[in-house]
Design a protein around this nucleic acid. Structure first.
Lengths: 245, 245
DNA sequence: GCGGAAGTTTGCGCTGGCGCAACAATGGCA
DNA sequence: TGCCATTGTTGCGCCAGCGCAAACTTCCGC
């Protein structure tokens, strides 16, 4: 079954989504009635950069990578979407087209609303706009943090930060540490941190030899998150002179 | 006069702000009644990173720089605020504290609302949330563009892009080109592009010798915006192989 | 008009990380 | 089971841009 109606969706799960914070059962039903659910097979695109923003989504299962391609053909990973998060909300922020490509990195399931329903839903449930504002605000924060890191940190620190963030978002405990909950290549990490897969590979190799992480094909386990954290965090020990007195 | 009521503010100007798009005169009055206007002398902070987010602002005159300081004491310029733009909207996106420091780079005037009024205003005028959503969405776009640039471009291209953006936002025509409309140092540009003031200085010197720009103390005139644009734009001529086939 | 602070320019040497290249390991699929 | 495509590893040389340092210029306050 590729598409279904909402009767098949776990209601108690949907009710917990940030997007629907503060909504009652009836309101929820009214909103969900407009959505369809869809499966996305691993490595398929949900939508592509530049495409008309026909729908917005909430991810229910799986993981989705949002990436941008430059005119030169280089790719940059914008973020990974975890279950419960919204994506493709271009229309809500005033865009006619998707600014990035969304690719399932695992078999995934999402709810989809036609973008055209957004204005009506917002008019009827103003809290939707407020909730989305919080979400987009958080994303802005994260993106700015990334800019700061890229401006001030070395590659090794950036990679450490990226992995810690992924582990926090989508990590699950395994025998010897925390494993990133979806397939991710050296290339992907490079595209998240503004470096090359070669450099990422070297860094991970070095970490592996020190017992900090354990790697595999598209697979990373953090064995010593605390040590990684120390690597990531530039210690403000020696008092740096403020640049602008 | 440091603080005044709204009677002194040019009404036709305020009515054009994106934040108040679609508002009628009476609604506008009701909102403006809650604001106070304030002057900020050049080089004074409107608020500081980490400080309690007591107010949000709309800039009426002047220019404000938003910057973040890392634990190591390094500064990164997040953006420059031009007249008409909102800033310090931390509360609206769910933050208790300002995530950055706002500094007037010129004598400036702003409207200020206590953050506590935001929930009430939004409840009364849902369009406020929608408008703010658009604004924050645009900012997210810009910040992501910056991430992409920092990931894929050389320093020279990034500086060119930064200057072109500043010129578009706050440039005014002068005899021999377009001048950035506020004082900006090499250091500032370095902090916008993730490099050092030395490198920026070298680049600008090189450009100046080629007649592309004209520099001065805290002053930059773009004499050949089009040539700068060509420098900034990585030409996708030779077809680059797509990284992810 | 003078002195000092802030901003800018420029030379020099060094290095983090990139680009290239070759090879190895892994997993999917026939 | 064996082949092939994808992904990962590693050595080597190079260079864009950083860090340091010194000198110069402009502006501002006294």
């Amino acid at each position: 079954m590729l598409r279904g109606n909402m009767a098949t969706v776990d209601h108690s799960l949907v009710a917990k989504l940030p997007l629907f914070a503060g909504f009652g059962t009836e309101e929820l039903d009214e909103i969900l009635r407009e959505a369809r659910s869809l499966r996305i097979a691993k490595n398929r695109n949900v939508f592509e950069q530049g495409e008309d923003a026909h729908s917005f989504f909430v991810l229910l299962h799986g993981h989705v990578r949002a990436s941008k391609t430059t005119p030169m053909g280089e790719q940059v990973v914008v973020r990974y979407v975890a279950p419960g998060e919204t994506f493709g909300v271009a229309m809500a922020i005033g865009l006619q087209r998707y600014p990035a490509t969304a690719t399932a990195v695992d078999d995934s399931v999402a709810l989809a609303w036609p973008s055209a329903t957004w204005p009506r839903l917002v008019a009827r449930f103003p809290a939707l706009a407020a909730n989305t504002l919080q979400t987009i605000g958080s994303r802005l924060q994260e993106t700015q943090t990334r800019v700061v890191e890229m401006s001030t940190q070395q590659v090794e620190q950036r990679v450490a930060n990226a992995l810690l963030r992924l582990a926090k978002q989508s990590g699950h405990k395994v025998e010897h540490g925390v494993e990133i909950g979806f397939p991710i290549s050296r290339q992907d990490i490079a595209q998240m941190t503004g470096t090359t897969l070669h450099t990422v590979s070297r860094i991970l190799s070095s970490w592996e030899s020190r017992g900090l992480v354990e790697g595999g094909r598209q697979r990373i386990v953090l064995r010593e998150p605390h040590k990684l954290f120390m690597l990531a965090e530039p210690s403000p020990d020696g008092s740096e002179p403020p640049a602008r007195p």
